[in-house]
Design a protein around this nucleic acid. Structure first.
Length: 211
DNA sequence: TGCCAGGCCCTCTTTAGGGCCTT
């Protein structure tokens, strides 16, 4: 079964290495071209929320103080996604927080991340901006009522991922798109998409890639 | 002391610098 988990964090800042912590997490499961399940929770890491973050996200210190402990939420969401491969918009950011928060509960990631922003740069080279909201609007996809909340952003990134998968299927005549292929696309050179897909199909046919 | 993310990408590049994207 080809399932992908699209995740999104809200945090107190940009860098777990500088002490920033997650304040909210959402995970959206995609299977057979549609959203099949969702997880979302605020989390209390014991930190106050900077005013700028409250202004950006609407998440306040009082909200996270009433939320379950970060440790419990991370254990729940890690169990929810299991070993399903992950996608995030600007995955370098979310993967740092995912790994850092898991490390705090003595767990580690066992799957790879794909970045929907990097895949979009390959498949939507005409885009003027690769911000999540702009790509979603440009593709005519459903926009979230409240951006900068974890579930709303994860759902927008999920719709963008489905759009990118459909674009790959249309352009290359594929009947399905795997996380492995998305990973190859994000690393491909601008002119190397065709060869990248052909190599994937060849290895898939030889049984080197599990679908 | 002073500074403070980090990875990708483009170009006035490659012995580098700056913009984008995430909160």
């Amino acid at each position: 079964m080809n399932t992908i988990a699209v995740i999104d964090f809200e945090t107190t800042g940009l860098s777990p290495a500088r002490g920033d912590r997650a304040t909210e997490i959402a995970a959206v499961l995609l299977r057979d071209g549609q959203i099949v399940d969702r997880y979302q929770s605020l989390m209390n890491a014991g930190l106050s929320i900077p005013p700028f973050i409250t202004q950006l996200t609407g998440i306040s210190t009082s909200m996270v103080r009433q939320a379950p402990p970060a440790e419990r939420v991370m254990a729940e969401v890690a169990d929810f996604v299991g070993t399903i491969p992950l996608v995030a918009h600007n995955a370098a950011f979310d993967s740092r927080f995912w790994d850092a928060e898991l490390r705090r509960i003595g767990r580690q990631r066992h799957q790879s991340f794909v970045c929907s922003m990097l895949v979009a740069k390959r498949l939507m080279p005409q885009a003027a901006s690769y911000k999540l909201g702009n790509l979603v609007a440009m593709a005519g996809l459903p926009t979230a009522a409240r951006a900068h909340r974890a579930l709303a952003d994860a759902e927008m990134a999920a719709h963008l991922t489905l759009h990118l998968e459909r674009e790959l299927m249309r352009r290359f005549g594929l009947d399905s798109v795997t996380h492995e292929l998305l990973g190859r696309i994000q690393r491909a050179s601008a002119g190397g998409l065709q060869g990248c897909v052909e190599r994937h199909l060849r290895e898939r046919k030889m049984g080197m890639i599990k679908v």
